[in-house]
Design a protein around this nucleic acid. Structure first.
Lengths: 338, 338
DNA sequence: AATTGGCACTCAGAGGGAGGGAGTGCCAAA
DNA sequence: TTTGGCACTCCCTCCCTCTGAGTGCCAATT
């Protein structure tokens, strides 16, 4: 349907439009790329491309700009992910390895990605349900108050206060703590509910109430954190772009956790897969003039969460995809190493 | 120097300009406010006000707009903080009391303040150095790995992993934990260094190395967190405003922790004091066309951190100040109650 | 059948008055 | 000190023209 030259033309249009932000005409095309044919020929090709919906003209007698469908074809068949330079890789590595804390890792990552791509970066905290228990701690902080601390293999720490109806002895706590840790050590958080199901049966009768309270808080913690935390950075980079639907809508969308969630997409099990969502492919109303490049990251081949970049549809896809992929890999390494 | 009527004129100019976003002329003034004099009189007054630098004209034959100096006078002498309506107070209270976590309190606060004022809200996490120790916990997580958990009276929880050079017995840990808690219970974090100074002397010789490791990590934690965490929300509200220096600069400034820090100002000991910084009074380059309304918040009469709002100099100062003050008070209450 | 040069046509955007109108400063009178 | 009158200033808007990049189509060429 589309011969090689027409594809080359589309590629050239996308590249030129991305770099100049102006509709590209037939003459400009043959000047900048040596296509070996005349402008008239290109015009014929462009007419076909337009008919098929890959490009459009803002008005009669202007050059062409790619449509969402055009970008899609470009991403799928006409471009390759552009690897980062050695210097960039080194910069990423040193910057990320300076982190001392999960918060810090995520914070550095999101800033790094924003700077690298000059767009808005979005990073999701590693999923609780997919990571596993490294340690559970139970601490008495007052007469009828316990603190439950949960440490995961991704370095995430959750804590909750538990109110008990009567005093609990030091021994009971020690016993309960030991039980919890035997039950849960290495256990995937998603499996915690089943793992603790028969735990109450193992505690002496007088401690049942306490055990129940602890378990209910523990399970509640897992549920509450099902809606994951997400952060973004680089909003200033949006100011340089002009959106058809207005900057405001985009900023508003960015401040909605739920929208950000949907934006990054599902956490599939296949790690390292780059997802690109272009313009109207985007589920959210306010983001129909933006594109999202996202990838999963995690430890080993286990995807724990996703991160990505949001920018105008008129975006350097190969470069952005390269940056997202690289950062996702390095974050995985950092998490594994910590 | 300025008689009552001239002040009234300035007040009217500020109010009109804030609500209409258009230079206000002498005729419009007498129409909207019943000043009881003719436009010509007002013109004379305005000439004086302009000469003194309180107002300016964008061009000849346009109305006047307040200068930063004019806003300053308005805030200092011509306006009173506008209390929130009962409904608003209730909304704040119910919204904030739903929080279950320090992160959640701060997150809710910043979103609430942004929505209430329709501007950018900035909230600083409660200072570590000014809060005090509620509990210290020491948890073995692996053979040569301890976890130090520090819980403050503001609900903040810090944790750090400690690597030890040799194995540590359960007993040693229990002993060390007890020692730490006796030393530190209720101790202001700023006083921790002196409080633990003679602690190593109290542990048996074979545990000295471990104690030293723990203490060094503990002190390090306090220092690291001296640069406090700050969050903001409501960037979308900026899009509605047009800044002379460009939205971009403002957004960039907002993403710099350091700038945000300076923006809120020093944490003075006098709680509840509203600080207003107008336009060029602002230290930061990119924020010279914005104003900041900030207040301290804390538990009791102890200021733990600050929060505030950033918007265009053309801002509803009485309303914004009311909202900031109210939110600061409620956050303090929530923190005290949790 | 594909490619090419030629040519008329279209239309966004820049540039340039013209007119309206809001607002001012100044002055003389009350 | 206040007021009405008046001439003046200039920003903004509307409208017009003109230019030029870019197009579609057609007939000629390969």
């Amino acid at each position: 349907m589309l011969d090689d030259r027409k594809l080359a033309v589309l590629r050239a249009i996308v590249e030129d439009y991305v770099s100049t932000n102006e509709p590209v005409g037939s003459k400009a095309l043959v000047d900048r790329h040596n296509l070996g044919v005349s402008p008239a020929t290109i015009r014929n090709d462009m007419a076909v491309l337009e008919e098929q919906g890959y490009i459009a003209q803002p008005h009669t007698s202007a050059g062409r700009i790619p449509t969402d469908k055009g970008y899609r074809l470009f991403v799928d068949r006409l471009s390759t992910v552009k690897p980062l330079s050695a210097a960039e890789r080194r910069a990423i590595e040193t910057f990320l390895s300076g982190a001392y804390d999960l918060d810090d890792v995520v914070g550095r990552t999101v800033r790094l990605l924003a700077q690298l791509t000059r767009q808005v970066a979005v990073v999701q905290y590693p999923s609780l349900t997919r990571s596993s228990v490294r340690h559970v701690e139970l601490v008495p902080v007052a007469a009828q108050r316990l603190l439950l601390v949960l440490i995961t293999n991704t370095g995430r720490v959750e804590q909750r206060v538990i109110e008990t109806s009567n005093d609990v002895s030091e021994d009971s706590i020690t016993h309960l703590r030991a039980l919890l840790n035997t039950c849960l050590d290495g256990c995937r958080l998603g499996d915690v509910p089943t793992a603790v199901a028969d735990l109450p049966a193992q505690v002496p009768f007088e401690d049942r109430a306490v055990a129940a309270a602890v378990l209910s808080v523990l399970l509640e913690t897992l549920v509450e954190n099902h809606d994951e935390k997400i952060v973004f950075a680089g909003a200033a980079n949006l100011a340089a772009v002009d959106f058809s639907q207005g900057l405001r809508q985009v900023l508003e969308a960015l401040e909605e956790q739920v929208v950000l969630m949907r934006l990054l997409g599902e956490v599939g099990d296949s790690s390292n897969t780059l997802t690109v969502r272009i313009g109207t492919e985007n589920p959210d109303e306010g983001l129909q003039s933006t594109s999202v490049v996202a990838a999963g990251y995690g430890v080993g081949n286990q995807t724990l969460a996703r991160l990505g970049v949001l920018g105008p549809t008129r975006m350097d896809y190969p470069g952005t995809m390269g940056a997202v992929r690289a950062v996702a890999r390095y974050v995985g390494q950092i998490l594994a190493g910590s």
